[in-house]
């Protein structure tokens, strides 16, 4: 009996993953193409720097003066995260389809975590493409030390994107408008922590501490899902 329940649970979980895949694949592909286009622009802009100036002067500007040749990337993860969350949850919330899902014979927590994992994986794949492109572009023109600095600069932006995705989910799932606004404000605060205007690589010493606010957002999303499931509007 237990085996059968577990198997059914796994099947149900797979069905959720497949449903989410079907729902977001086309918009996700569009986001991926847009991000790819942005990285192509970063490559062109970087090349242009070397066309306009001698290589040693570009190195001086980038390596010593802290010019960020990929600054166009800064807000792309946030926009990607926000859009991905809207794509995933807006249709579910406007027609309350998520309520049906939450009444399936699977733990609501697992269901929501499954939804979040799909979203974070989709977001992670796009960011992986962005960061890989950034690595390739930077290593083409600069020594590996510059690649390390570029990644330490772009990683907080990626974290901001993940926070934007989770924060928007936190806001979208909450049924009460007062709490929805509060959740969105807290999420915006978390996103802002990763977008301070600083010198390249300035977040480096924070290391693992950098991920804590984003990791905390994952279990936090379960509260609005619970409230939505049990119709706690006021």
């Amino acid at each position: 009996m237990r085996l059968s329940v577990t198997r059914e649970g796994i099947d149900m979980f797979r069905s959720i993953l497949f449903k989410e895949y079907l729902k977001i694949r086309l918009p996700w592909l569009t986001l991926l193409i847009l991000n790819g286009g942005l990285m192509a622009y970063v490559a062109i802009a970087t090349r242009h720097l070397f066309v306009m100036d001698h290589a040693e002067m570009v190195w001086y500007q980038v390596l010593h003066l802290g010019r960020i040749h990929y600054s166009h990337l800064k807000y792309a993860p946030v926009v990607t995260g926000l859009l991905l969350s809207c794509i995933q949850y807006l249709p579910e919330m406007t027609s309350e389809r998520l309520r049906l899902t939450l009444h399936l014979p699977v733990s609501p927590n697992r269901l929501i975590i499954a939804h979040i994992m799909v979203g974070l994986t989709a977001f992670g794949l796009i960011l992986f493409v962005d960061l890989t492109a950034l690595t390739l572009i930077t290593s083409w023109y600069f020594p590996f030390e510059a690649v390390t600095t570029a990644l330490w600069t772009a990683l907080p932006w990626a974290m901001a994107g993940a926070a934007a995705y989770l924060g928007a989910t936190l806001g979208l799932l909450e049924p009460n408008y007062r709490l929805k606004l509060f959740n969105l404000a807290i999420a915006a605060g978390v996103v802002g922590l990763y977008l301070y205007p600083l010198s390249p690589g300035a977040y480096r010493l924070l290391g693992f501490k950098l991920t804590v606010p984003v990791l905390l957002l994952i279990p936090a999303v379960l509260l609005p899902a619970y409230r939505f499931r049990y119709r706690r509007v006021s």
């Binding site: 605060g189 279990p219 936090a220």
Partner: peptide, 21 residues
Amino acid sequence: MRKPAVIVLIVLSVFVLAVYL
């Protein structure tokens, strides 16, 4: 799972408020 979610959201809120306020 509701209780941990509430605790986490409160911790996160206190942290964010302590940064921005």
